[in-house]
Amino acid sequence: MGTDQSVGFSLDALRDRLAYQPLLLGGVALVAGTALTLASNATRAPIAAAEAHDTQMTLAQVLPPGSADNDLLADVLELPGPAAGSTRRIHIARKAGVVTGAVFNVAERGYSGEIRLLMAVDPAGRVLGVRVLKHTETPGLGDKIEIARNPWITSFDGKSLGEPAPAKWAVKKDGGIYDSFAGATITPRAVVKAVKGGLDYFAAHRNEILGVQP
């Protein structure tokens, strides 16, 4: 772009060269765009690997160790979701070809935004595990639903639609069996509702998920 040092700060020189400004702006945009393309290309593979690793780790958390020997990321079933027109991806866990569990996302509105959970259900309809994927609950209160902060989320393990009875699928404050946190009732209430919704969904689509003829 020239070595003329006066170009930078002399207004007179600039007015003579009207094309200088758009060309410079365009040039900087071009360089920035190139840099971004290079960075994006260079990081694409590590990012994809990190995300796949992430999903793998979360899937492994909700399933008991050794309960699956297939590639959960590839063994996916697309079923109609709870909302009209939506689809829900269901990862099928198999051991020696036999279905040992179904893993899928559920979501519910919490205190301040959507709480997204990943849950695994065994063929008999019992919860194998639940983990929070994403939430925006109050730090120090609602974030106790994270396994890293509180083991509360494991209280769903082994529960099913019949055990406890449907009326007991609630926090203790509402007459159910699940604890709520001091100062945060709405968050656990939403999680309980989401897990129960997931079990209802599994019950409604059990045959498709397990691949058996009704």
Binding site: M1, G2, Q5, V7, G8, F9, L11, L14, Y20, Q21, L24, L25, V28, A29, A32, G33, A35, L36, A39, S40, T43, I47
Partner: peptide
């Protein structure tokens, strides 16, 4: 020395935004 005074803000923001995106990636 190459950035004209009038369009310095867009140029600065462009540079900062590109760098931030690289850091983000």
């Amino acid at each position: 020395n190459f950035i004209p005074y009038e369009i310095r803000i867009p140029v600065f923001i462009l540079i900062i935004a590109a760098l931030t995106t690289v850091v983000d990636l």
